[in-house]
Simulated scan of single mutants.
Amino acid sequence: MSGHSKWSTIKHKKAAQDAKRGKVFTKLIKELTVAARLGGGDPDGNPRLRAAIAAAKAENMPKENIERAIKKGTGELEGEAYEEAIYEGYGPGGVAILVEVTTDNRNRAASEIRHIFSKNGGSLGEAGCVAWMFEKHGLIVFNKDKVEEDHLMEVALEAGAEDVRDQEDQFEVITTPGDLEKVKAVFDEKGMVYEMAHVTMVPQSTVRVEDEKTAQQLLKLMDALEDNDDVQNAYANFDIPDEILNAVA
């Protein structure tokens, strides 16, 4: 997972600094609305909504924006009728890609996703072609210079994490989706600084991409997907060495 999670960390930092912050808010509002529509407006009884609220707060979304999105989901306010879809395919180098979409126009979304894949050296596949390679987990990423490994391992496992993985210059703490907030809260209480914490799709195996041209084309494809207004998340199983990732990202 290291290549993709490292790229996600870079993207997360960049989004907090540039004009794409508006797109981040749009995606969060969609998730809040859909989560409230599917599971109700009470976060105590709706884990998906609880996670969406935590993500929105992490991006400093105003409280009134969060409440408005939830009310649109529960029907208290008029809002768009969003539906969810998953698209699967392959990128340059044979990398598996899973795309989660939330849209008010499914035909438009399908057409745009197909175009993005074909334009950037990828191909959209049939349903189920790569989904089996991914499992949903909580992921908390630490830079190695911010934490001591033995201490991280002890705290993480006592808090209920499933695993701690050594990934080059990062540690990745893996949890079940339901335990992410609990484990993250323990780190917060102890003042342990992490780079990123969210529910994600973790690949069971990775594809090593060591050619710089292929890596550049692959990341261009991933950027185009994440920049699309209908795409909520795009996951991939690439593992790009740090020196190449830093050069092309």
Rank of each mutant, 00 (worst) to 15 (best):
I174N: 11
G79R: 04
N233P: 00
A224D: 06
K213P: 01
D230Y: 00
Q232S: 13
R50E: 13
K23V: 13
A58T: 11
L49N: 10
D145H: 12
W7M: 04
D179P: 03
D18M: 04
E112W: 02
C129M: 01
S2G: 09
E243F: 08
V155S: 03
A224C: 04
G122K: 13
R21W: 06
E64Y: 05
K119N: 09
A110M: 03
V101K: 09
S5G: 03
D145W: 12
K13Q: 06
E64Q: 06
E243T: 08
T176K: 12
L219H: 04
T26I: 07
A127P: 11
K30F: 02
E181I: 10
K213N: 10
T33E: 08
L218H: 00
R48I: 04
E172M: 08
G160A: 06
G122C: 12
P241V: 00
E181L: 15
A19S: 12
W132V: 05
E189I: 04
V186Y: 10
I113M: 03
G41E: 07
Y82F: 13
T103I: 15
R68D: 14
M222T: 00
E78N: 08
E76W: 07
L124F: 04
I240D: 05
Y82Q: 03
I70W: 06
F187N: 02
L98G: 05
K57V: 06
E210R: 02
V193W: 04
N65I: 03
S8A: 09
A58G: 02
E189V: 07
E78H: 09
E162C: 07
R208S: 15
A35F: 08
G40D: 13
T103S: 15
G40K: 12
V248K: 00
F117P: 05
A131E: 11
M192P: 12
F142W: 13
E31W: 02
N228Y: 02
M196P: 00
G125W: 09
L221W: 01
V95E: 06
V199Q: 14
D166P: 02
A58I: 08
F134Q: 15
I70S: 10
A247C: 00
A249Q: 06
E112M: 11
F117H: 06
G122Q: 13
N233R: 13
L219W: 01
T26C: 06
T200M: 03
